Amino acid sequence: MAGKVVLQYFNGRGKMESIRWLLAVAEVDYDEVYLTTREQYEKLLSDGDLMFQQVPLVEMDGMKLIQTKAILNYIAEKYNLHGKDIKDRVMINMYSEGVMDLMEMIMMLPFSADANAQLETIQTKAKGRYLPVFEKALSGPMYLVGGKLSCADVQLLECTLMLEEKFVGILAEFPNVKSFQGRMTRIPAISKFLEPGSKRKPQPDETYVKTIMEVFKIKLPLK
């Protein structure tokens, strides 16, 4: 019998946060092992746990899973959050990857050489490239694809909350997205995940950035 799901990553959002969100929606309990030292990372490498020398690492169903998209797809498939057929799935994946492109820009802010310029770029792209797509997709349906909750919906909610942390009122021009956000936050599992004391991580702080620098032996800001 497979044991409890275990996540190995830093004590912060990063690429693991979307995985935490999806597990929360699927109501899957999990433990976390936080990377805090270079030695922990090197042990994962020497044990052969990191296929491409990268985290996140998720231990689940007797497997050691890496690569964020692959992990998200596995969870989505297992817990019926990936559409009813192959056509639904490809649409879900397109929306999901678009959201991830935008979220990754936000994730990189603490490591940016010019955070103010990067913020301006994120806001411009969010309002001009990404949010209009979701505003149109949500002009009638409750969810993005197939009339049912999917991993793309969960990631879009996560993304809208991240955007509002940086740009208060950014959804004012996108009422369908804002209404969608409100509906999503009323889903019991999501409402619970948004409560204080949940496993949702706060915005990155100096400790999070410093730990990543030390574990991966990188120098900031990144160029």
Rank of each mutant, 00 (worst) to 15 (best):
L220Y: 11
K69H: 13
D29E: 15
G169N: 10
F167A: 10
M91D: 09
K219C: 12
M16Y: 06
P202H: 09
L138V: 03
G14L: 06
E42C: 12
G197I: 12
L157Q: 00
D153C: 04
E27I: 01
S139C: 12
S139Q: 15
E27T: 03
N116E: 15
G48H: 03
N80D: 14
T37M: 06
G83M: 12
L144G: 11
V28A: 05
L144A: 13
Y79F: 15
C159S: 01
A172R: 12
V177S: 01
V209Q: 05
Y208R: 10
G169T: 09
I92G: 07
V168T: 13
F52M: 15
T37L: 02
T207N: 12
G3D: 12
E77K: 14
I71L: 06
M91Q: 13
P132C: 09
M184F: 08
F174D: 13
G146S: 09
D31E: 15
S191W: 00
Q123I: 00
K84S: 15
P221V: 00
K87S: 08
S46Q: 13
Y74R: 14
K210M: 02
A113D: 08
L57P: 08
V58M: 14
G128N: 08
K199D: 11
P175V: 07
C151R: 10
V6R: 08
T211I: 07
A115C: 13
Y74V: 03
Y9I: 11
I106N: 00
I106R: 00
T37A: 01
L22Y: 02
I86G: 08
Q53K: 15
R200Y: 02
E206Y: 03
S150W: 05
N11M: 09
I86K: 15
E77C: 12
L144K: 10
E173R: 05
L35C: 09
L45N: 11
K64D: 06
E206K: 15
C151G: 07
E173C: 05
V55R: 05
F134E: 06
V55E: 09
L7R: 09
M91T: 01
L222N: 02
L72F: 09
V55P: 00
T68F: 01
E195W: 04
P196I: 10
H82G: 07
L157S: 00
C151P: 01
M108T: 04
L220A: 11
A24K: 06
L50P: 05
L149V: 08
Y95Q: 01
Q54K: 14
K64T: 10
L35K: 08
D85C: 04
S112T: 00
I66W: 01
A152M: 11
Y130K: 05
G140T: 14
P56V: 08
Q53E: 13
V168K: 15
E59I: 13
M142T: 14
T124G: 02
V99T: 05
P202R: 05
T121S: 04
S18R: 10
F180C: 00
L156V: 02
R129D: 06
L119S: 11
N80Y: 07
K78R: 14
I19H: 09
A2V: 11
L171D: 02
I122F: 01
I19E: 05
I106C: 03
G182K: 03
A70E: 03
L50N: 00
V28N: 03
K210G: 02
D29R: 12
G62R: 07
I66C: 13
M162G: 09
E17V: 02
D49W: 07
F10K: 09
G146Q: 10
A70R: 07
K84C: 03
T37N: 04
M91P: 00
L57H: 09
L50E: 01
T36R: 12
A115G: 09
